[in-house]
Simulated assay, not measured.
Amino acid sequence: MEEKWLTWAKQIQSIAQAGLTYTQDNYDYERYIELRQLSTKMMETYTDYEMKTIQQLFANETGYQTPKVDVRAVVFHEGKLLFVKEKADGKWSLPGGWGDVGFTPGEVAVKEVQEESGYVVKARRLLAVLDHQKHPHPPSPYHIYKVMIECELIGGNAAESIETSDCGFFAQNELPPLSTGRITESQIEMLFVLHNDPALGPVFD
């Protein structure tokens, strides 16, 4: 579903970053720098981002490039799903964020729920591992794997956070406006199906 130009730009960036990491030839090093610059120019041309922002987001890493990991907590209570309202865009998503070094995916899910909603949960099972570019998200400079972990509500109280301004449980037929860079309606539909049938295994890709 991802635009071809964005896929190509990310592939060029990945090749350039790997080359900069492993090459021992000065001539090749300069060519990889040129490839990285080409990828950022493509992003600047076809998006509303400024070059400085693109360089910070898209071409600032070193080492072999790998996908980023976005962990989302799936918390059901009385048939409804927990959402948090993102201050960044005023829309709603599942609690979560980038995976943290030193934490397991389950630990990240638990931590993000408490930080973003005030609720205390326990991670129970893996529901899905999804490739961001295979789903109807807006274009992203990153290649992202989304890890969805079902959690059991065990305590806490609703609260705001630095990143969120509200939280609440919603039924499938009353979804709030979604922050589609983080979660999509089709993914929410999939999560309700998985929750309602514990015999189903994790979904991937």
Rank of each mutant, 00 (worst) to 15 (best):
A59R: 00
E61G: 03
E61R: 04
T62V: 06
T62N: 02
G63I: 00
Y64N: 10
Y64K: 09
T66G: 07
T66S: 09
P67Y: 00
K68H: 06
V69H: 07
V69A: 09
R72S: 15
A73N: 02
A73T: 04
V75T: 06
V75W: 03
V75P: 02
V75D: 04
V75E: 04
F76C: 08
H77P: 11
H77I: 11
E78H: 11
E78S: 13
G79E: 08
K80P: 11
L81Y: 11
F83A: 11
F83C: 11
V84D: 13
K85H: 12
E86I: 14
E86P: 12
E86K: 15
E86F: 13
K87S: 15
G90M: 01
L94A: 05
P95Y: 11
P95H: 13
G96P: 14
V101E: 07
F103L: 14
F103D: 12
F103P: 09
P105S: 02
E107D: 05
E107I: 03
V108P: 01
V108C: 12
V108A: 08
K111D: 06
E116F: 04
S117P: 07
V120W: 08
V121W: 03
V121F: 04
K122N: 15
R124F: 10
R124G: 10
L126C: 07
L126W: 05
L127V: 06
L127K: 05
A128Y: 04
A128M: 05
A128G: 02
V129L: 10
L130F: 11
L130V: 09
D131F: 08
H132Y: 14
Q133M: 15
Q133L: 14
K134H: 10
P136W: 06
P136D: 08
P138R: 09
P139W: 05
P141T: 10
Y142T: 08
H143E: 12
Y145V: 13
M148C: 07
M148R: 05
M148D: 04
I149H: 04
E150K: 01
C151M: 00
G155V: 00
G155R: 00
G156Q: 01
G156C: 02
E160L: 06
E160F: 03
E160W: 04
E160G: 07
S161D: 00
S161W: 02
E163D: 15
D166M: 05
D166G: 02
C167H: 07
F169N: 05
F170E: 05
F170S: 07
N173I: 08
E174N: 15
L175W: 06
L175D: 05
P176D: 09
L178Q: 06
